[in-house]
Design a protein around this nucleic acid. Structure first.
Lengths: 149, 149
DNA sequence: ACATATACTTGCAAAATGCAAATAAGAGAG
DNA sequence: CTCTCTTATTTGCATTTTGCAAGTATATGT
């Protein structure tokens, strides 16, 4: 069996390119980091600045400024939390939701093409494998988490 | 089945953290990009600046400077090619090879821990799945490649 | 020999990064 | 209620990274 890390390295690089290639959709052009941020805000439930920064492993001061850019681009909205006014709740604007959805569709359609080279059974196996892998990575304490927490 | 992109997004983020967490080994501290560069130089056969830059999808001018840093750190050696003196052949110094190997060992030991949460059969299935995935991504023309080539 | 193409480097300005410090607001002790 | 401590976010600032445009050096073709 080939070096395990090598397998991961190739896969994640390819997926990284896919992500990168889907940063320009329907007239919008965002950075890779911004794409990740939109994705996370879309998937978390009323997340705070800190929560998203931690999920992405981005320094909070850098992240704060990234959010400012996205607000200026009218893709993200910052709302002071009602329970705790120190906290900023992040959400996507209509425009931001549109972009996030467009990116998601583009990526999934590229991924569909990739999976078209497999049988349905293989596809199922691969997807189940990734799910299993994700759950095992989640179990690991030493590995696969951002530093400094 | 959960959104396919979501599965990949989680997996690659976690592997990214793993990569990041293995950037400090036995007294050396390198950046994530530098780690990727060392890895590629180690795996390709006498690669040129251009080849590695293209593999990693890094702009060649940025890459040229990254290599300069690594040369200063005495991890990488640049040798003018004998056949074509415009070309710089990249190789790891003894020190660079040592660092690359240390990173690799650290990553593989963390990955071993992740796989310890699976049965041997599951592990085999997962690894085979990733191999299959990589080969299908390689087949795809539209997806998973760096832009601008 | 001269024009053209290729591999790499450098100048420069813009963007991203992260530490230290500031600001603002909740929480607990008395 | 006030003082102190903690927490969430922002800002100042210096450093690093990035990528386009242009430059240098070498190869290739006519």
């Amino acid at each position: 069996m080939e070096n395990i890390r090598a397998l991961f390295q190739v896969m994640t690089r390819r997926f990284g390119f896919l992500n990168k290639n889907c940063c320009g959709v329907s007239g919008y052009e965002i950075s890779l980091t911004q794409s990740h941020i939109l994705y996370e805000i879309d998937h978390q439930h009323q997340p705070s600045i800190q929560q998203v920064a931690e999920t992405l492993g981005i320094d909070i001061t850098t992240f704060s400024r990234q959010v400012q850019s996205l607000v200026k681009m009218n893709l993200v909205k910052k709302t002071p939390s009602v329970e705790d006014r120190r906290v900023m709740v992040l959400s996507l604007t209509t425009e931001g939701k549109y972009v996030a959805t467009a990116v998601d569709k583009m990526m999934n359609s590229f991924l569909d093409e990739v999976f078209s080279y497999m049988t349905d059974f293989e596809k199922e196996t691969v997807l189940r494998s990734i799910q299993l892998l994700n759950s095992c990575m989640a179990k690991s304490k030493m590995c696969c988490n951002p530093v400094g927490d």
